[in-house]
Design a protein around this nucleic acid. Sequence first.
DNA 1: AGATTGGCCCAAAGCGCTTTGGACATGGGC
DNA 2: GCCCATGTCCAAAGCGCTTTGGGCCAATCT
Lengths: 341, 341
Amino acid sequence: MNLKELAASLNLSPTTVSRALNGYPEVRAETRARVLEAAEAANYRPNSRARRLAMGRSMAIGHVISLSEEAQMINPIFADFLAGAGEVYAREGYDLVLSIVPQDQEAAAYRQLAASGSVDGLMIQAPRCQEPRLPLLKELGLPFIVHGRTDTASDHPWLDIANRSAFKQATNFLLDLGHRRIALVNGLEQFDYAARRRRGYLEALEARGIAPDPAIMRGAEMTESYGYASAAEFLDSDDPPTAFLASSILPAIGIRRAAGERGLRLGRDVSVIAHDDVLSYLYNDGDGPAFTATRSPIRKAGQRCAELLIAQIGAPGGAPVQELWQVELTVGRTTGPCPAT
Amino acid sequence: MNLKELAASLNLSPTTVSRALNGYPEVRAETRARVLEAAEAANYRPNSRARRLAMGRSMAIGHVISLSEEAQMINPIFADFLAGAGEVYAREGYDLVLSIVPQDQEAAAYRQLAASGSVDGLMIQAPRCQEPRLPLLKELGLPFIVHGRTDTASDHPWLDIANRSAFKQATNFLLDLGHRRIALVNGLEQFDYAARRRRGYLEALEARGIAPDPAIMRGAEMTESYGYASAAEFLDSDDPPTAFLASSILPAIGIRRAAGERGLRLGRDVSVIAHDDVLSYLYNDGDGPAFTATRSPIRKAGQRCAELLIAQIGAPGGAPVQELWQVELTVGRTTGPCPAT
DNA sequence: AGATTGGCCCAAAGCGCTTTGGACATGGGC
DNA sequence: GCCCATGTCCAAAGCGCTTTGGGCCAATCT
């Protein structure tokens, strides 16, 4: 059933039917009702291919996820972000077009989406400190928003959390508990968020005159086994840390495992603070693990980014929206005073 | 730059340029080369909206993920499946259209994708025992493939792993180690895979004349905290199990935490077998946790499903492909003989 | 009364491709 | 020398919508 047939069955022109369905005013109320009813009855849905062509818009947002040697995996954090954004897209009538490509085809994927007009906007995740996609995005001329920031001054829309201050705060919290040897189990520090967290950690140490020790600072893909391996190595060293700062709940779980194997209890023998993206399947609350955590729901970020992007597509021009979200430190059961030596 | 302009710049007709670009034979080799070169130089990419309309195909596959009360989360398993499928789509020139909707809009989402012609095929994940989407899918008439099976006899394409036999095998393995009280920490048993796993578990028990105890059998969304809570409760009961069967690594991690808190060591005091979907960020190998596991990479399943679906779209008709993958039990360090009482 | 407005509707022109149905040479076979 | 196959190209007709630019008539204004 297409528009022409529907129009014929109503003895109306396609023009009128189209207008009735799309809410234009120049159609009598009675006629509109008749059209809507017939469309409903026939289960008519305008052909999106034709619609997109005629309107010159795709009603779709592109997400590109690139898999590299280092990050072979689809980051679990992406998934929750996607869920948040996806909810908004569905509500607003946008499609979500997801491109999953090898990293060396990342630029090509963006070009393809833009040049072929498959999407009306792009969602950019996990920017690096020096983000090579930025010049590309300017060139493409599509609306976009970055979840996160970059080193360089930016005049594009972004949304980020206060990573530096969160980790500074977390480090200070541990310092206040008497910990002096604090390990950093960070994400890949080529990513801006990880670099900022490291900076916050270093600033806090420096403010107390503590020299950072590279031997207990690390950055890698945030998996459980990475957290485990790092903690195992640190704890077995001559000068083990008494506290850990982890960039995600996943490595924190690994740290807990390593500690457990060594008979160490979190919050008593070893303290751990994790950044908690509030991943839905790693619920960290209530009766749960209750990691002390810097917490910021990644899913909410996805929602908000989607809203901002859609707003920008709807009304281009204007100053780029830039939102910085503060992060709360919630105290759980994995931190405690530094044990006496 | 569109086709007409490109053609004009080459003193050719749009017809010829289109044919040259799309590899049709009726174009001189020299002309084709000229066209390709010019297209490359101009960074020309055919407008996908127009292309889709003209071809009557969308070159896109739809995935619908519905969030319900019980499953508010985007399942981490979906993410890896998506990654696998996405790789194949990218390689084959298909877009991945992801709809994330509240469960009560699930059917509407499928209808919308189909009736508006946004996609050429549908990927169905996580079928329930009595899957309400199946009649809907038949009605829609789009090619689709189900990752998993259903109770009812089916004449549609699917790909599944041997869940029942895997869990039967795992249960037998524990029984052979002398365990008699084995807890089941399953996924939501409205889903077919979980029901089958339960059946495998029950069959193995029955074969040894052991009556299953509902008090240590459970099914829910497979989170870490679910595994933790279940294990905590079971272990603190009057008649605690000596072994656990978990439907995913995530609850298994929770079980490990509960055991650890109680001073119990996995593989010695308590045995655990998990089903391992080989989620990339929960790597279970090498130096890692090495859960004894029934293992089947969900990502590979995603790849294969995508391949099968695309093949079906390319050549409709023919008998539906149905693939059943066997699952290997890999012995890790979380299982051991039942401790003497 | 004639002129003007506004409400309602329609015909037709795109949107930028692909594809059908030729057109026009050229060359080989008889 | 004629015919037909072959190679190469093009004009034009869609694909199914949206949107522009009227047309017509009843209601309102002067």
